[in-house]
Design a protein around this nucleic acid. Structure first.
Lengths: 152, 152
DNA sequence: TCCTATTGACAACATGGTTGTCGTATTAGT
DNA sequence: ACTAATACGACAACCATGTTGTCAATAGGA
């Protein structure tokens, strides 16, 4: 193995543990709330005030329509989301956050804010930017590789 | 939100998509093999020629003893792993890769090599190092935060 | 020797999905 | 306006990767 791929392997390992730690942190932060990670993700999409349909959200998040539907139904049950008539499609309604949903999402973000700050402070701003850039390029390359594999 | 936390958010998003893409890539690479990701991970630990017990592996990988046991049993079924008597403990045997297991793991690594090279080439070596370092420090900070949350 | 901790085995459950299928509403093409 | 194709919601079955709990046997230390 070349030294190049060795540092890359190292980076990949860090990415993995980072992902896992981020997830467990997020879980502990919202452990007492009625919002699970899937719901949080959908709420995040909806927090940008742009109403979306279920298929929209599925495309945006790269998951299946059916799964998003289930999550949205949970959100409806919890009054975190409400439907808005869709001028472009009568059956497929649009969804937005309810005031409660908005408030809950704000709460989530607030809880996340303090860890975020302590993370940001522990790192150099320009290093963060470099890392983000490296990963972005890596992701681009990865999506190439994945598409190649699919069409092959 | 400060610009600091904004670039950090950006980094986090990249970490997430990177993780996911790495996983789907790994899946496509070993789609035709009888080795799933859990098995691959255990095999990686065992590929270093140091025999380990199930509890050892569980500790090393940070997962439950019971889960590692199940994976090891799969590996035994597939003849990828064999038991070695443990001088330190009569009930808890040590595990090593069989010749077949070793060969299969080599095959896996070989398949992974070419994508790794193309990734490494797409990026600057020193940037990779910086990114790995940033994530390592971030992970350290994250584990602090997680432990805080647990003990609170 | 006796007590406690460790281990393997098994089962139930959780999470975050995917895939497949139906019926019908809706859209788009003509 | 009519029809064919499609998009959508609803539901169900399934899957992967775990976790947690429990039991009995056994190992190891005092």
């Amino acid at each position: 193995m070349t030294t190049q791929t060795k540092t890359l392997t190292h980076l990949i390992r860090e990415v993995r543990t980072c992902f896992n730690q981020l997830r467990t942190l997020a879980e502990t932060l919202s452990a007492d709330m009625e919002v699970n990670p899937s719901m949080r993700a959908i709420m995040e999409s909806l927090s940008q005030k742009v109403p979306r349909t279920v298929p929209d959200l599925a495309k945006e998040r790269g998951t299946s329509r059916q799964h998003v539907q289930k999550v949205i139904n949970n959100l409806l049950d919890e009054d975190l989301v409400l439907t808005v008539e869709n001028p472009e499609h009568k059956r497929s309604v649009l969804y937005v956050l309810t005031p409660k949903g908005d408030q809950v999402f704000r709460e989530i973000r607030q809880r996340e804010a303090s860890p975020m700050r302590s993370l940001a402070q522990a790192l150099d701003q320009s290093d963060i930017a470099v890392a983000a850039d490296v990963l972005a390029r890596m992701n681009q390359q990865l999506s190439h590789l994945i598409n190649q594999g699919e069409t092959k």
